[in-house]
Amino acid sequence: MSFLIKGIVAIGLILYPFLVGYSLANGQYIWVSCLLIVFGLVRLFSKGNALLWPLTGFAILCGGLSLLLKDHAWLKLYPVFMSVGAFIIFATTLIKPPSMIERFARLAEPDLPLEGVIWTRKVTFIWCGFFVVNAVIALMTVLLASTKIWVLYNGFISYILMGILLLGEYLLRKRQQKLHQAQK
Rank of each mutant, 00 (worst) to 15 (best):
S23T: 04
I30G: 07
A91L: 13
P17G: 09
V123N: 07
W31G: 02
A86K: 02
P98M: 08
T120E: 00
H72P: 13
K148P: 03
W127S: 07
S99L: 05
G7D: 05
H72S: 15
L15T: 07
W53K: 06
M162T: 08
I11S: 04
R106M: 15
S46P: 06
W119D: 14
M82C: 10
Y159G: 03
F156T: 14
L75F: 02
L166N: 11
L143F: 12
K174V: 08
W119A: 12
W119S: 10
W150L: 13
V123H: 03
V84C: 13
L112N: 06
A182D: 12
G40R: 00
H180W: 12
A105W: 01
G129P: 01
T92S: 15
K96R: 14
F156A: 15
W31P: 00
L67G: 11
I8G: 09
L15V: 11
Q28V: 08
A50L: 08
M100G: 08
A50W: 02
R43M: 12
W127T: 10
G163P: 08
P54G: 05
V136K: 01
L44W: 14
I149D: 06
A138E: 13
S146T: 15
M1C: 03
L51P: 05
L139T: 14
V151F: 04
E109P: 01
K178I: 07
L61E: 09
L51V: 10
T141N: 07
T120F: 04
L139N: 10
L41S: 01
A73W: 14
H180A: 13
G48A: 04
K76Q: 13
R173W: 01
Q181E: 15
L114T: 12
L19C: 13
G27W: 01
A135R: 04
N26A: 03
W150A: 04
A108C: 02
T124H: 08
N154M: 05
T56S: 05
I137M: 12
G57V: 13
A91C: 06
C62N: 12
L13D: 11
P17N: 06
V9I: 14
L77D: 08
D71N: 15
Q176I: 10
F131Q: 00
A86G: 11
K122V: 00
S33K: 05
S66I: 02
L165C: 04
P17V: 11
I95H: 10
G21V: 10
L172T: 06
E109Q: 14
L35R: 00
M1A: 13
L94Y: 13
Y22G: 00
A10Y: 03
L144E: 10
E109T: 13
R175G: 06
R103V: 12
F39R: 00
F39T: 07
V80D: 06
M82P: 00
S146K: 07
V117I: 11
V123S: 08
S46H: 04
L166H: 13
Y153T: 03
I149A: 13
M1K: 06
K6H: 14
G168D: 04
R103G: 04
G57E: 03
L171M: 09
L4I: 15
L44E: 11
L171Y: 05
P113S: 06
N49Q: 07
K148F: 14
D111W: 05
F45I: 03
G27M: 02
L114I: 12
G64Q: 00
A138N: 10
N49F: 02
I149W: 11
I149F: 07
S66Y: 06
